[in-house]
Design a protein around this nucleic acid. Structure first.
Lengths: 195, 195
DNA sequence: TGTTAAACGGAGGGTGTCTCCGTATATAAG
DNA sequence: CTTATATACGGAGACACCCTCCGTTTAACA
């Protein structure tokens, strides 16, 4: 039920397929940045110079495309988490990372909407990037809890969701200030009181 | 440029118009509950037994419909805020109201997505219900700040946005526990430290 | 009962999603 | 360089949705 891969010799992946995939990612990144994560997929296909069918073959649903586009960013975030964890005390690392997260929401602000879009639907199979993000925040949270400075009865990912919500909407021009302030509120809120 | 209202005698509003409006609201409430705030407007019109044109005449955009549908709920929330403010110390009132807010997100869980949908777009003219909600939370927040127990450098509405985000997604079945916990985190986070 | 302003309905144009299948082509074998 | 074939391509087309437009209907008033 598993080992069905080396059955046949298996060909080398076709060059044009790889090229088209790259073109699609390139185009998607541009278009998402321009028009947000709700941009038309057909338009992306057009921008990439391929047919609609090709797009859907490579990325069956919108989420698959979104995920692929932002995989890099997710990876960078994950790596930043490691750096912070080494250089800072756990709670500070968590805070610093959340602030970085806010910043990312800003630059690739399609990403925020993307996050929302990703986890929509009835518990769909989480895209891999979502899992990566979850693992990252879970690790940071766990470290913080272990340090004893923090109590956390909430799913850590939910903290990110909260931040993303504030950061996503065009709301005021102060969205970033608000988001950064929210980070501090959250951090203060989860700090275990001496009491 | 302004006083143009009592110019002509003005007729009584047509009965069918009022009836259709009611039918539409009824249908919209049902359909939104079933399929979320992104449900097809044509479908709502169909469910109400009226033509699409009629729907759009009464509610020019989706937000207008959403707002009308949830106006009651908003009103109830606003009134609850007053009650809480009289019966509880300011910070407790704020907390209690936020928890009630979470509960509302649950029952009419289309409302959460609605909130998101409401404020989308580039700072559109806030629908009236949005304004009501904002006024409510602003008042509660101001009371809390005045009491000296709380510092608040964030736009109070953003706190709601954060809560709504956690409460909206189908995420886990523990969304409600998470949301309630978030309320406590936020409250703790904005409490001014004696320091 | 007639007049008229108000409201209705639904066809239709524009856009977006996603599928299907005949055609093209990169790879591997001879 | 052929030939064979798995693989991928493209874009037409079926379907859903949004929203407008305008000829027709109907409620209110005289």
């Amino acid at each position: 039920m598993e080992g069905d891969k080396i059955d046949r010799p298996a060909r080398k992946p076709r060059a044009d397929a790889q090229r088209n995939r790259a073109l699609l990612l390139q185009a998607a990144k541009t278009v998402f940045a321009e028009k947000g994560a709700e941009a038309s997929l057909d338009e992306i296909a057009r921008a990439a110079g391929v047919g609609a069918g090709t797009l859907y073959r490579h990325f069956p649903h919108r989420d698959a495309l979104i995920e692929a586009v932002y995989r890099n960013e997710m990876e960078q975030l994950a790596q930043a988490a490691e750096r912070f964890s080494e250089a800072l005390p756990p709670v500070e690392a968590l805070r610093a990372w959340m602030l970085l997260f806010v910043e990312y929401m800003g630059t690739k602000h399609a990403m925020a909407a993307a996050l929302t879009s990703l986890s929509r639907g009835p518990g769909e199979l989480y895209a891999a990037s979502g899992a990566r993000l979850q693992a990252t925040i879970d690790q940071l949270a766990e470290n913080a809890v272990r340090s004893g400075e923090v109590r956390l009865e909430i799913e850590p990912l939910e903290l990110l969701r909260a931040i993303a919500a504030v950061a996503s909407v065009g709301a005021g021009p102060d969205w970033e200030a608000n988001a950064r302030r929210l980070v501090d509120i959250l951090i203060a809120g989860i700090r275990a009181r001496p009491e």
